[in-house]
Design a protein around this nucleic acid. Structure first.
Length: 512
RNA sequence: GGCCCGUUCGUCUAGGGGUUAGGACGCAAGAUUUUCAUUCUUGUAACACGGGUUCGAUUCCCGUACGGGCUACCA
């Protein structure tokens, strides 16, 4: 068995969006499952679109998700370099080999000439304006021009590209692990540029050469590559590599929440949700984006959510760690159709992971943010707060936001509820229970609760008459943990302070 | 326009020639609770359409519709 080697091959043109992360994830899972190697290759063959910082972003995003490459620019490896710009010198040789075999040719048409030709064809009402077998003899290339002329231009160093010569009349069969067999007729294919005028290869040439040189066994990539896969098959064939052509698997796209097209970077702003793993600072606000990390997501939740967007293990279990899903993964179980991005589900996943995280871990995580808010909670105590709050929030940081009253005085009292609940006998009930509670020791929830119950039963009152008032006194809001739990965590001193202060304020109501 | 790919509840999906078409998110109701949330229970809601093939199609085939992708010296 040939060892499995897969690659994730993004282009460093900006932030890597969440669809890219999913592609990386599926590659990673496939590699791990087969005891293979997961490779990161940077496809920076377009110098015009190169964006500084994008590669570092890609690396950091993968790391955050736990998808660290085995080989790649950051990690090294025996098949480097892993940036195509650093492999530039290798590609021309293969393009030339194709020219010699009559499978490719030189073309001297300039961009302007091509544009002009396309425009003419459009006006003439041609359905297609692609540079193909129908057109190439009208263009300036080594097929249409005099060989001597071609040689002279080449010798003179005239700018040129090398194009793949696709002959009509053939049917290309693509075997895809997800889609089965796909056939394409060669008369539909254009003569793709393989080597650009600047000497860089296009994606098509580079990916074939590098996949071969890096001994890639499976190409798992987005569906947008399916149409050009026939060209790639032709390339493998032309180079005499068809015997060891990798297996293909074309993944369904991630669609916009409204289903109108594939998810794009602008959809984050449009739908009020992150579409990138990490925030990206672009040259303008419009080109800057928030990330799942910055929104407070747990990477485990993001990975779980993403994995299930287009794949599932066939069980009714929804929660799978990276480790748990690895043995279950298979390309065959990937869906064929695109999946809409469901932000509600992503949030649900986050809460699931949040609730499953031990309180101490959450405390460690939140300590820095608490400090930045000017709070200096004891870690063990913070863990208790986390325990009370984690099932009431979606994101870990909301524990601090929604539970601010554990760390500082109540800002607002819920006036609407107060108006309903503050009755003529409220003040005496409030005070009476205070007496009992504040003298109870130890100051723990269970004991406080039983003392309180005994007291209001004796007083002939019900919990509904008094507890809501305590809740507002302690937290200001009707939402939150059980009153006795809050009392315990706040401790006797803080509890007394709050109750006394609130009672004072609540009494003011009667006068106004 | 041409080529390629697709289509099960609103969304993510399981299933597969004969099923009460299953789960999850969301939504709704109920239970629990001092509140909120969690949890549990229940409900809501789907095989795009038309032809075949078949004793029988949601499942297989063909069309249509709809959706998506590609159609650059971008990846």
């Amino acid at each position: 068995m040939v060892p499995v080697r897969v690659r994730f091959a993004p282009s460093p043109t900006g932030a890597l969006h969440i669809g890219g992360i999913r592609t990386a994830l599926y590659n990673y899972l496939f590699a791990r499952q087969h005891g293979g190697t997961f490779i990161l290759r940077i496809e920076d063959t377009d110098q015009n679109r190169y964006v500084p910082g994008a590669e570092a972003y890609i690396l950091e995003a993968l790391q955050w998700c736990g998808l660290t490459p085995d080989e790649g620019p950051g990690s090294g490896g025996p098949y480097g370099p892993y940036r195509q710009s650093e492999r530039k010198s290798r590609y021309r040789e293969y393009a030339l080999r194709l020219v010699e075999a009559g499978k490719a040719y030189y073309a001297f048409d300039t961009e302007a000439e091509l544009e002009e030709k396309r425009e003419k064809l459009r006006q003439a009402g041609w359905a297609s304006s692609q540079y193909d077998h129908r057109l190439r003899m009208d263009m300036r290339n080594s097929l249409s021009m005099d060989p001597e002329d071609v040689r002279q231009r080449l010798d003179a160093g005239e700018p040129h590209v090398i194009r793949l010569k696709v002959d009509p009349g053939e049917e290309i069969l693509i075997r895809d692990a997800i889609r089965g067999e796909v056939t394409v007729r060669t008369e539909e294919l254009d003569d793709k540029v393989l080597l650009k005028a600047d000497g860089m290869p296009t994606y098509h040439l580079a990916n074939i050469v590098d996949d071969r040189l890096m001994e890639i066994t499976h190409v798992i990539r987005g569906e947008e590559w399916l149409p050009s896969t026939a060209h790639h098959v032709l390339l493998y064939r032309g180079l005499g590599w068809e015997d060891r052509m990798p297996e293909f698997a074309h993944l369904p796209l991630i669609l916009r929440p409204d289903g109108k097209g594939k998810l794009s970077k602008r959809d984050g702003a449009r739908f009020g949700m992150p579409v990138f793993p990490l925030a990206w600072k672009g040259d303008t606000d419009e080109n800057s984006f928030t990330g799942f990390r910055e929104e407070g997501f747990d990477p485990r939740a993001v990975v779980n959510f993403l994995a299930f967007l287009g794949w599932n293990p066939g069980t009714e279990q929804e929660i799978y760690s990276l480790e748990a899903m690895t043995p279950e993964f298979s390309l065959e179980r990937i869906h064929k159709s695109g999946a809409r991005f469901d932000y509600d589900k992503a949030r649900w996943y986050n809460q699931q992971y949040l609730m499953a995280t031990p309180d101490e871990e959450l405390a460690t995580l939140l300590l820095p943010e608490a400090a930045s808010r000017g709070w200096k909670p004891d870690k063990e105590w913070l863990a208790k707060v986390c325990g009370l709050m984690k099932e009431r929030v979606t994101f870990a940081r909301d524990i601090l936001r929604k539970g601010y009253y554990f760390f500082e005085p109540v800002k607002d009292y819920d006036q609407a509820t107060l108006a309903r609940k503050w009755q003529p006998d409220s003040a005496s009930l409030f005070e009476g229970l205070m007496e009992v509670l504040l003298n109870t020791r130890p100051f723990v929830a269970a004991g406080l609760e039983s003392k309180a119950k005994a007291w209001w039963e004796a007083a002939g009152a019900g919990p509904g008459a008094i507890l809501p008032l305590y809740r507002i006194a302690l937290a200001g809001t009707m939402k939150g943990p059980a009153v006795f739990e809050m009392l315990e965590v706040l401790g006797p001193d803080l509890s007394r302070e709050r109750l006394v202060r609130a009672l004072e304020i609540f009494r003011q109501r009667e006068k106004s």
